[in-house]
Design a protein around this nucleic acid. Sequence first.
DNA 1: CAATGCGGTGGTAGCGCTGTCAATAATCAT
DNA 2: ATGATTATTGACAGCGCTACCACCGCATTG
Lengths: 343, 343
Amino acid sequence: MARARTSSGKVRLTEVAKLAGVSPITASRFFRNPEALSPAKRERVENAARQLGYVPDLAARALASRRTEVVGVLIPSFTNNVFSDVLRGIYDGSGESRYSIQLVNTDYSILQEEKLLRLFKAQRPAGLVVTGINQTAESRAILESMNCPIVQIMELGPDPIDMMVGFSHNAAAFAVISHLIGLNFKRIGFLGARMDPRVQRRLEGYTDAMKRAALYDPRLIITTPVPTSVTMGGTLFADLLMKAPDLDAVFCVNDDLALGTLFECQRRRIQVPEDIAIVGFNDLEYVASAVPPLSSVRTNRYDMGRIAITMLMDAIEGRPPAAPVIDLGFELMIRRSSAARRV
Amino acid sequence: MARARTSSGKVRLTEVAKLAGVSPITASRFFRNPEALSPAKRERVENAARQLGYVPDLAARALASRRTEVVGVLIPSFTNNVFSDVLRGIYDGSGESRYSIQLVNTDYSILQEEKLLRLFKAQRPAGLVVTGINQTAESRAILESMNCPIVQIMELGPDPIDMMVGFSHNAAAFAVISHLIGLNFKRIGFLGARMDPRVQRRLEGYTDAMKRAALYDPRLIITTPVPTSVTMGGTLFADLLMKAPDLDAVFCVNDDLALGTLFECQRRRIQVPEDIAIVGFNDLEYVASAVPPLSSVRTNRYDMGRIAITMLMDAIEGRPPAAPVIDLGFELMIRRSSAARRV
DNA sequence: CAATGCGGTGGTAGCGCTGTCAATAATCAT
DNA sequence: ATGATTATTGACAGCGCTACCACCGCATTG
């Protein structure tokens, strides 16, 4: 009942083993843990595999071993270029490894996230990267019942499911506002779009800082659930100016809004930063070459992805990280748009 | 030798079949081709599956059926927001289907692409989406030997591997330059970064149009292999001004370069479009709200992704498209940055 | 009325690989 | 030298599902 090589010319492990003169199981071990073989057999299997152009069948491996080498990554959006940096880090970090990335998009919906987690669970991923800390109770239960390492990215929270890599959005916003207050700005507006949990926390940081300086005024806050865009930045800024004509600075929850605000200022011949200071968030590449260069908050998105996937792969392979929660911090990038000292 | 339900509590097809009172094979058919079942059994299997929360094991399915429901997508870069739109289309289009997307990044390297294709081949994907038409001969051979539908996206060419969805970059650039020439611009510069095949074709379109109008001058062309960025736009534009001080218009191969050029003009107090007209490419969201609004070329990137994946899934399921090659065209978005008529 | 077709169903036999555990060979401590 | 330990290897039995083919009963046909 010996099976012949399939018509497709697909090379199976058995063929490799036969050519190498070892049992299939030994050949199998070569691909999973070469050190377990004696040097002589190791070399023979290696040669046989190369000679036949053998590539393991991942489906068979997954079925037999009851686990996959797939890492699931859940992010809220492909459009937001914040995530493209994170993704780049993830793909770079996993590039040469045995793991493959299965990317899915939750579209900023925690219910969609829950649904996707359920799907993932059935496929027994080797590990999981999820965005943020605002999962539904049900999602959390699924995650905890999943027998694999998990990294939460983008932000930090008190109760990690497993590992975490991020930074405090609250603290970052607080730092921005403290900076502006230190320059004697008083009427500091807040512009927010697509108020996802992280943006909410930036708003909290803003509110804390403003209240602490007794500068808080709800009329200074404009938000919209609509997705963010440069155009939206101009629109929101125009709204804000109407509600608070004595505005002297604006903190935008992302650089797109900040750029839109800058353009709106240019249209209205408002001097930046003399009339109004602007600070963005994320420190996208373009803000440094705007006129004037825009202040922003640098976040280490690429590193976040890279570190997350590295920690995850290490944990999968039984090397848990020294610290399960990593704060990558942020850096205030003060540029001309917020550099003028008020007197 | 009846196996009990696995300790993990995983529900198998057998359990569903037992509860529904049918054979496993009938239950299996329900998930692949429900129409083949009699209405009564169909309903019983459906209820049983729901009741048990059954989710099929894709690894077992792939192994048994000798094919997967994975669609491989090869794109050159995650950073370039052009691709994030395409990806959004692909993920949206495949969202509710049975197919899952396996995304990989070639990093603009056709050798990397070849390597990835080899890997894909071993996993027998259901279909493949590849970027562009400049594969290596070896890649092309692999693609043709792969027994699955393939869509090439982003551009069009004379010799499709299977299907194609894109537009002519050459024609788009030609149209831009013709537009500028029609407005009596004569010293039209070309700014290009990361000269990938599609950018090369835009340069060809530029060159054709300039030569046809007897305006071609190599000093008007500045390119760099370095990745594109807004900052790079400013740098290249500064170079161009040095080489061609009598410049009256600039065609940038993407909107980032155009924005960088605009910022550089603002810094140098060059009036746009009175002194120099600017046209970008891709029509990213922000160009319309720049000051002045930037002309650009709208390309249907989201639709490109969506149509590509739809065609692909149809082809996988035996419904080949009416036309294997789809030209999505482009649209010149003329805005103030290139609207001044020269006299 | 037997022959034919067909929708619906089930049994058998794997898909290609690995977990488990036993068997053997090589090395070590006593 | 002997038993005990460790490194290396192999046999067996599936992982959960589907391809393939056989079968059943009913309707249609000459």
